[in-house]
């Protein structure tokens, strides 16, 4: 089995397996959570919980100024990583080609130079986040094996993707294979780790926002 075979596997069967595990896992996780339900709130509300929930879904994305003083590095790195990962995932031309190929929709891409800068920033932010996790007493205390594993699994697609743009020292096939496999690893572990927050954070914010809004509190 040479690198070419592995690449073909990663582009075909491997991707299929990863996508199936991802979609099955995410659906199970969401349904087993959502179907736990909530008791209806019988207290007379001050305002609509539904609207308040949606408001918090968006407002909680804004940086907490209260924490900016205490945890500025963590917040800034967190923003750079999340925005960077999102932009690179959805606005790099070959990625758009992938989505187009799978789902038939496409949209304009960003120039590779910009993608490259964003990738470097995101990787830098990830290392800052790791440093924070190791140095900060609270984060170190809370961290489990999963936190470090997920960190690595998030780094690999960015790193291999960056190296893919700079093939002088590496074979494109090897790096593309590594890139695809790292993405597949990310997809496979996604439903079983805290990566699920990418979906559930919106539920969490909605629940919290709705419960607070009924009391007339904006959170």
């Amino acid at each position: 089995m040479n690198i070419f075979d592995i690449l073909q596997w990663a582009r075909g069967t491997g991707l299929q397996i990863a996508v199936v595990i991802f979609s099955v896992g995410v659906l199970i996780r969401l349904l087993e959570m959502w179907m736990l339900n909530r008791k209806p709130d019988l207290a007379e509300p001050r305002a609509s919980g539904t609207l308040g929930g949606w408001r918090t879904v968006f407002t909680r994305s804004a940086p907490s100024m209260v924490l900016m003083k205490k945890a500025g590095l963590l917040l800034v790195s967190g923003y750079i990583f999340h925005l960077g990962f999102f932009i690179v995932l959805f606005f790099f031309a070959p990625h758009i080609r992938l989505f187009h190929n799978m789902f038939g929709v496409s949209w304009p891409a960003l120039p590779n130079g910009i993608i490259e800068i964003i990738t470097i920033l995101s990787i830098g932010a990830l290392f800052a986040l790791l440093a924070h996790r190791i140095m900060n007493p609270v984060q170190r205390f809370l961290s489990t094996f999963q936190d470090y594993f997920v960190w690595l699994a998030s780094l690999l697609p960015l790193l291999t993707g960056y190296l893919l743009l700079h093939t002088s020292d590496f074979s494109y096939s090897q790096m593309l294979t590594a890139h695809l496999l790292s993405v597949e690893l990310l997809l496979v572990i996604f439903p079983f780790t805290k990566l699920m927050h990418a979906f559930t954070t919106f539920f969490s914010r909605w629940y919290t926002g709705a419960m607070a809004a009924r009391k007339g509190v904006t959170v």
Binding site: M33, N37, K39, L142, D147, K194, M196, T200, S204, T208
Partner: peptide, 13 residues
């Protein structure tokens, strides 16, 4: 309940 399950799913430490 569902909110608690969502909260535990979401925590990123």
């Amino acid at each position: 309940d569902a909110p608690i399950a969502s909260f535990f799913n979401s925590c990123v430490h």
